[in-house]
């Protein structure tokens, strides 16, 4: 399997006035296409920082990141935006959706950005919402959806754009255990059926239990990288 995500010596130092806060201190990481990996570690260990660098939302202060073989550190903003649009889906802890758009429109929005013809957008958006179990809730705005339902819309949106990678930062942190279980099961299923690579930052042991690969971070370094032969969700 080829590396869809490749990090070489990635460093990130935040500067707050005169104080330098090293958040990542040299990360070497390869994630294979189709992987289902979790990233955990104590608060402040650099999980969010690493995801934002991989997603091209921020730039490393050292090292290089390649997505699908393409180095991204020197890319201009607009090209990074295109890269995210075509290759990366995000699920955040909260606020992953555009508040003025309904569930259906949130999914259609990404298709609009992808320039999918208008006639195709509706049916495709309905289909992915059905796949994530949101049939009947298509016309609700995020404010009228539960936290779990909102995260499902975010997953549906990622699914609709058929990205290579979904980056999720603590997607279950605000969910009760049943909703958390269902969301993980959904992501694992999508990973299995559509081959989308998932990289999920989480403290949640239920999530970790589903993964094929588990990465531990401490203080800006990878301290453990555990691969499991069998996909437990399967």
């Amino acid at each position: 399997m080829s590396s869809i995500i490749q990090c070489r010596g990635v460093e990130k130092i935040y500067r707050q006035g005169d104080v330098e806060v090293p958040a990542l201190r040299g990360i070497d990481l390869d994630i294979q296409a189709g992987d289902f990996a979790t990233l955990s570690g104590p608060s402040g260990s650099g999980k969010t920082t690493l995801l934002s660098l991989i997603g091209g939302l921020d730039r490393p202060t050292g090292g290089e990141i390649s997505i699908d073989g393409e180095p991204i550190s020197g890319m201009p903003k607009a090209r990074l935006a295109d890269l995210r649009l075509h290759k990366i889906g995000f699920v955040f802890q909260t606020y992953s959706l555009i508040p003025v758009l309904s569930a259906l429109e949130n999914v259609e929005f990404i298709l609009r950005l992808l320039k999918v013809p208008p006639a195709e957008r509706g049916p495709r958006a309905r289909e992915v919402l059905r796949q994530v179990g949101l049939e009947g809730l298509e016309d609700r705005r995020p404010s009228r959806l539960s936290g779990g339902q909102q995260q499902r819309v975010a997953v549906a949106r990622a699914l609709a754009s058929r990205p290579a990678i979904v980056l999720a930062d603590e997607p279950t942190a605000n969910l009760d255990s049943q909703n958390a279980e269902e969301l993980i099961a959904l992501m694992a299923e999508l990973n299995a059926t559509s081959g989308i690579t998932f990289l999920i930052a989480t403290h949640d042991s239920r999530v970790i239990a589903h993964t094929r690969r588990h990465i531990e971070m401490t203080d800006g370094r990878i301290t453990a990288d555990e691969r499991r032969g069998a996909d437990i969700a399967a």
């Binding site: 939302l57 903003k77 607009a78 935006a81 995000f90 606020y95």
Partner: peptide, 14 residues
């Protein structure tokens, strides 16, 4: 935060 989200989704600055 919403404009951050739109960019994260791949909406170009323009």
């Amino acid at each position: 935060r919403e404009f951050g989200l739109l960019q994260a989704l791949g909406m170009r600055p323009g």
